[in-house]
Write a protein that binds this DNA or RNA. Sequence first.
DNA 1: GTTCATGCAAACAGTTTGCACAATA
DNA 2: TATTGTGCAAACTGTTTGCATGAAC
Lengths: 147, 147
Amino acid sequence: MKHAQGRAMLSQSKQIGIRQTKGQQAVLETLGNCEHLLSAQEIYVQLRATEHPVGLATVYRAVESLVVEGKLQTINLEGQAYYQVAQGTHSRHHLVCLQCKKVIPIAGCPVGELERQLSSRHAFAIDYHVLDFFGTCAQCDQPVSED
Amino acid sequence: MKHAQGRAMLSQSKQIGIRQTKGQQAVLETLGNCEHLLSAQEIYVQLRATEHPVGLATVYRAVESLVVEGKLQTINLEGQAYYQVAQGTHSRHHLVCLQCKKVIPIAGCPVGELERQLSSRHAFAIDYHVLDFFGTCAQCDQPVSED
DNA sequence: GTTCATGCAAACAGTTTGCACAATA
DNA sequence: TATTGTGCAAACTGTTTGCATGAAC
C-alpha cells in the first residue's frame, strides 16, 4: 500500500486549479451527517445510495485532498483508515467506540506540556502525537434486555 | 485485510500445544536485536539472511501469537503494522522516529488520570488508549555535512 | 478548447489462509 | 504416531493509478 495519509505539501499547489469538486463535497457532507468514523469504503457505500453517487477511487482521492487541506482527520483503526471532519484547530484526540465507531472529540490537548518535556529530554523533534482512547460508549454498553 | 492485531482470546487455547516455535523465537530475537520498529516484511527480510530463515506467513503467524501473548506490541504507522518487543507492564507509549523508525519508550502512563476523568464524564468504558509521539530523533536530525 | 475531476478496471501491497510436509513430543 | 509449526502459493482486501470521458472555466 502506498498510503501517505497525512502528508502535506499539495495544499498550496492544489489551490490553483480548484474546481469545487463534487467528490469532496459529497464526502464532506456524508461525514458531516455522521457522528462516527467512516472508512473510505463506508463513505462510498453511503454515497452510492444518494442522488450523487461517486466512485470508490473518487472517494479515496477526495478524502486524501481533504486530509491534506486539513478538513478531515484520519484515524487508523486496526490497519484501516477511518475519517471524520476535523474539529477546529488541534483537537486530534478522541474517545472512539470500538463497536459503533462513534467518536467523541476531547477538548484541548492534555499532553502539550509532556510533549515539550519529552522533546527536550530526548532531543527529539516531535512533529505530532496521537492520543486516542478506545472502548465502548454508553449506548453500546447498554445491557441488551433480549438475551 | 483481516488483521486483528491486538485481539486476545487465543492466549489460553494456544498454551495447550505449545512447541517452542522456531518462528516466534526468530522473530523475538530479531526484534530484540533492534531498537527500532520492524514491519512483518522487514522481519522477514532480516530473517532470510540468518541461518534459520522463515517464511513470510510464519512471520505473520508468529507476530500474531506474540502480540496475543503480550510479548510484542503493535504500532500502526500510516496503515502498516510495526512491531517491537513489549516493555514490561503497560509502557504502551513511545517516541517514534519517522525516519529511522527507532522507538523510545516513555516511562509510565501520563494519561491515566485523564482516562479516569473521561471515562466517568462521558460514561465511556475505556479499554485502552494510544499515545505516541512522532518526529525525528537526535541522530536523524543531525545536519548532514555532505551537502 | 483546455484543464481537471470522475469512473472504471487493473495494478499494487500488506495480510491471511489452505494444504502438504516437516519437526517435535 | 499424533500433533502442531512451517513454507509455499493463492486468495483477500484496502488502496492507488492509468486512461478515456465529461464537466467547468
